[in-house]
């Protein structure tokens, strides 16, 4: 579950403004006239990404989250009551309303992953980083978050770090990913066992021709 919103926290900035005005305009113009409020979700995402950009340069680093000032700014841009923005932002789990680490690790522990020993992945993370679920490392690099199913059960156990999925994990590959990220390297995205898409490890067992045609084998 994501961290709760804290209204009076010191880290809440007083102001927020979008850096990329043209992008904001482009997003708003995607929606028909009079329905501009629909832009609330992409704008919240844009705000979170902008904060992530700032966070990458800061010391200690931090990841993307949405300050209250940003929500108020979006409400003003879209001419809607702020509470409507708060409702949306608090509803969706991908909008962080409190600061997170530069790498937000979302660990799936729902049934299929759990059956494939997601607990070992969680343990690998907590042991390696020395923090528990819902906590952030002191250097601001990592936050661990337990989440419900992310929809990649075929390649369980899996996790999500920022925008990317890492699948078919073992304790070892998990630790390796964390070690690479600690040095800001880019680990391989997707299956860690070389599996392509969601076919069997050894290659396609059905629809072989189609797989060839699609160029995945």
């Amino acid at each position: 579950m994501k961290k709760p919103f804290e209204l009076h926290a010191e880290y809440q900035p007083a102001n927020f403004a979008f850096r990329n005005g043209t992008k904001v305009e482009k997003i708003i113009n995607l929606y028909p006239k009079g329905r501009q409020q629909s832009a609330v979700m992409p704008l919240l995402d844009l705000a979170q990404r902008q904060v992530a950009e700032d966070g990458a340069k800061a010391s200690p680093v931090y990841g993307g989250w949405i300050p209250r000032a940003a929500m108020d700014h979006i409400a003003e841009l879209l001419d809607m009551p702020p509470i409507k923005v708060y409702e949306v932002a608090s509803f969706y789990s991908m909008y962080n309303l409190a600061p997170v680490g530069k790498y937000l690790i979302q660990l799936c522990t729902t049934t299929p992953c759990w059956l494939c020993n997601a607990d070992a992945i969680v343990k690998a993370c907590t042991d390696h980083l020395g923090i528990g679920l819902g906590e952030t490392t002191k250097d601001g690099k990592f936050t661990l978050m337990e989440v419900e199913c992310l929809g990649a059960c075929v390649n369980a156990p899996m996790i999500q770090i920022n925008d990317d999925y890492y699948e078919d994990l073992t304790s070892e590959s998990m630790k390796e990913i964390l070690a690479m990220l600690a040095d800001d390297l880019k680990p391989k995205i997707g299956s860690q066992k070389g599996r392509k898409a969601s076919m069997a490890l050894t290659g396609p067992t059905t629809l072989e021709k189609e797989a060839k045609k699609a160029g995945v084998v």
């Binding site: 579950m1 919103f5 209204l7 009551p81 509470i83 409507k84 708060y86 409702e87």
Partner: peptide, 20 residues
């Protein structure tokens, strides 16, 4: 005066003004 809303979701859903 739209200041009340439903925040969060699922079993955490609650009614409030979010910003006190």
């Amino acid at each position: 005066t739209p200041v009340i809303g439903q925040m969060n979701r699922g079993e955490d859903a609650e009614i409030g003004t979010f910003i006190d």
